[in-house]
Design a protein around this nucleic acid. Sequence first.
RNA 1: UGGGCUAUGGCCAAGUUGGUCAAGGCAUCGGACUCUGACUCCGAAACCGCUAGUUCGAAUCUAGCUAGCCCAGCCA
Length: 544
Amino acid sequence: MEMASNFIKSIIEEDIASGKVREIVTRFPPEPNAYLHIGHARAIITDFEMARIFGGYTNLRFDDTNPVKEDAMFVEAIKEDIKWLGYTPKNVFFGSDYFEESYQRALLLIRKGLAYVDDQSPEEVSKHRGTLTEPGVESPCRNRSVEENLRLFQEMRDGKYADGEKTLRAKIDMASPNINMRDPVIYRILHITHHNTGDRWCIYPMYDFAHPLQDAIEGVTHSLCSLEYVDHRVLYDWFVEKCEMPHTPHQYEFGRLNITNTIMSKRYLRQLVDAKEVRGYDDPRMPTLVGLRRRGYTPEAIRTFVIGTGLSRINSTVSSEMLENCLRDDLRLKALRVNAVLNPLKVVIDNYPEGQTEWFDAPNNNENEALGLRKIPFEKVVYIERDDFAETAPDKHWKRLSLGLEVRLMHTYFIKCISVVKDQDGTPREIHCTYDPETKSGTGFTARKPNGNLHFVAAGQALPATFNLFEPLMVDSDGDRPLLERLNRDSWHVMNGFVEPSLKDVQSGDKFQFVRNGYFSVDYDSRPGALVFNRIVELKSSFK
RNA sequence: UGGGCUAUGGCCAAGUUGGUCAAGGCAUCGGACUCUGACUCCGAAACCGCUAGUUCGAAUCUAGCUAGCCCAGCCA
């Protein structure tokens, strides 16, 4: 699937047409402090696709300028997720690779009288910043001499000051209506060991200063980010210009991607894990890439979803059904369509010989012959879904089994229900049927129409299996109450049933369509003899 | 009158030298087909946030208005 027309693509096309840029270079700059989720997928896919479409390339750059928040463990996880999505960065860099250069550029700013060391405490800085409607007040340190600033900044670097004691600030405009321009802090003191640079530095650049410099150093042409950075763009441009960067990157912003009934913020996801409301970041109900992967989502489905939802300057909330549809679409012709009974009801076929097993050919995918055939067994005792039987048909639209009605067990025979054995409470324990040898599949029998086609599993050949069915962790319609209050605590249902024998040797991650039910993926915990399947999505159904 | 951004059917989203019926996807509702109530195939809905202008003609131009989102971390 190709990306449709969107405003960023148009900008790039114009830039190429006008000769403004020759090769497109983008970057994906995650901060290594969390697992990636499907919201990030939009950024990743946009960054990589934009470069790919125009024959350029994309760098992966870990934005590790704040050692208090970051963790090397996420570096590998993020690399893995990007690879899984199908992308390969041209280079893998770290923001910390540019600490020395950033430092030199800060020095340049100081020499040009465009940066100064401030002695104010964080509280004072905050107080003097002003408000949305009132200008800020200038720091008493604002007009220090270049020499003094140079000396102080050197001392900051040398570790003479404690955390928070001093900062380096850009000298811009304390009265700017854009608060980002009110002398933003560009270096802060942090006596902490950095996962990459160890104890080499105790001053670290802020995002607003570091990011444009990193982009410029790498030769990024189009620096794509989300809408909340619109107000930072003027600062971005200011730093590139004032620091005299030899290359001028440009920032473009697009809206974030949200999905209905899906929690997407780092904070909430962490909360779910910490509160043990889910089994970890790779819980199949989580919107993290590791969670979606475990659930069984394919990278292709995620890519078509992201590309299909388009790109604009609106923070959009796309229906989760769209994502589900992308998964079905991806697996429709790829997945083997096999039989699984999640909630079994025993069916005894009275007139079928005891101990006999007949093997029938069944297409693995009736829309894709290339996937071939497999054998499925038929026997005297089989299982069907409990939902596929009702003692008396509820209405004329009922296309399943009932007393006196005849249905086809797919790829085998018609069976007719003649009696029901019930438990004390009235629930059917088993039902008795007869089969009609005349109706054998493949013989071209057309004398009667069955009242439906049911999937089944022959009892003697059935493999026991566990099925995990999922619901959203929360529902949007629950309003604005705190997350943990509107959590759906019954979002994971476990069913125990059977699958057909052809599934004996499935491997973790294998995907199937369980006929008339949905798409399933073999869970990581699945073992031969103890199969575990996760339902990725249900099949659509017009059954009411 | 702080600054910035946005506004096209239920949800996304094309469309910007003004002019064939305002793409497409998801969802929804009908119908056909079917050895999956799946798939597939037909059919159905918007006058483009509002108002007033410019024009033979505007979603596309102008003015005013309304609504939503973002910004006061030594976070990113």
